[in-house]
Design a protein around this nucleic acid. Structure first.
Lengths: 193, 193
DNA sequence: CTGTATAGGGTACAGTTGTACCAATTCTTT
DNA sequence: AAAGAATTGGTACAACTGTACCCTATACAG
């Protein structure tokens, strides 16, 4: 009777192994065999829980979105005030620690694959970013009534995505990226003149 | 005697074929054979001009940076005034037409590879973005003396990178991205209060 | 007790990859 | 004219990929 949930656990374990491999050696290195080895199981077991590699890739992407959402929820708990909320959420979009670094590397790799791979493109890839953007827009709307919430929130999210890519690529440090982010938030939330 | 330059032309042709394949089918699809077919030459010829795939990948990346630089130079010619210059340069960072769409897809794919591939990481990947950032900072410095040029230019460049990724992923249209960009530039270049 | 489904392991296979090798042709130089 | 270097082609090969197949155990329904 617990078979169903047990099965789901196994699938999660394997998907997490894929994410680990992809984060350390690149998404292209996440072969069936590499994932099986990382998960400490046989190749056949991976095949048993995922009929095809496409299914595994798709499930791992779901799992990644889930993990990123969990991180945001955990970070946001106990934070109050529009400025603090927005800063917390946007900071999570920056790869400041190994875990989020892995997340953003794998997520962006998936996104690049999705541009040319119809199967991945069908995924609800953009649900999380869209939700973030709406949330930030909402906070701006009744935290800074003078501004255009949608345009400003889109700009902020895009900036963080770009800053995150810059950090990943080694263009700037996570601290520098945070400084750029804080500067923009200071401007947005400065006392009305 | 023209052999040397002839050889260089051939290498460019092959590298351009790689960029075309990568832009249409993804960087992972740019195999030796696919590149040879796209270039209309035999597999051995590709091997002849590039001893190893790593060399081909590296040369194609150089070539991509060259093409992107050429596009910026061409776009900027005939444009005057800080606001117009900055807008022109940043707009080029957005995938508004097929060519720049291809450029940004392949460039970002390379960047993701470089995170886990030491050979690619050694490349002067960030020279172009850094140069752009410096140029924009310079324009802001004596176009908008009140602002912090480096922080604002970093924010603008990062925002455009993020917007570009969003356009590639299908999150928003190129027009919407341009609207977000223009809104930020309007703010930066509004009459001093 | 018997059969049937689930979980697991090992191996085989066809296709693709980067690379290496061998042959032929063309061009330059002596 | 001859020799040799550069250029092009075809094919071979070892490694790796995703997938398929065959063989056990163990749990549970009849």
């Amino acid at each position: 009777m617990a078979r169903g949930t047990d099965r789901e656990w196994r699938r999660r374990d394997i998907a997490d192994a894929l994410l680990r491999v992809a984060g350390e050696r690149g998404l292209h290195a996440a072969t069936m065999r590499a994932v099986a080895a990382e998960a400490g199981v046989s190749l056949h077991l991976v095949q048993h829980y995922f009929d095809t590699k496409e299914q595994l890739m798709s499930f791992a992407l779901q799992r990644l979105a889930e993990l990123m959402r969990d991180r945001v929820v955990q970070r946001v708990s106990g934070v109050a005030g529009p400025r603090e909320l927005v800063e917390t959420i946007l900071a999570e979009a920056l790869p400041t620690d190994p875990a989020s670094r892995l997340h953003h590397l794998v997520y962006t790799s998936y996104a690049m694959l999705a541009v040319t791979d119809p199967a991945l493109a069908a995924h609800p890839f953009l649900a999380a970013p869209d939700a973030m953007e709406s949330f930030v827009a909402e906070q701006l709307a009744h935290g800074r009534p003078g501004t255009d919430p949608r345009l400003e929130s889109a700009a902020l999210l895009a900036m963080c995505a770009g800053l995150g890519a810059g950090v990943l690529a080694g263009q700037r440090s996570a601290e520098d990226a945070m400084a750029v982010l804080r500067h923009q938030l200071d401007r947005l939330f400065e006392v009305t003149h």
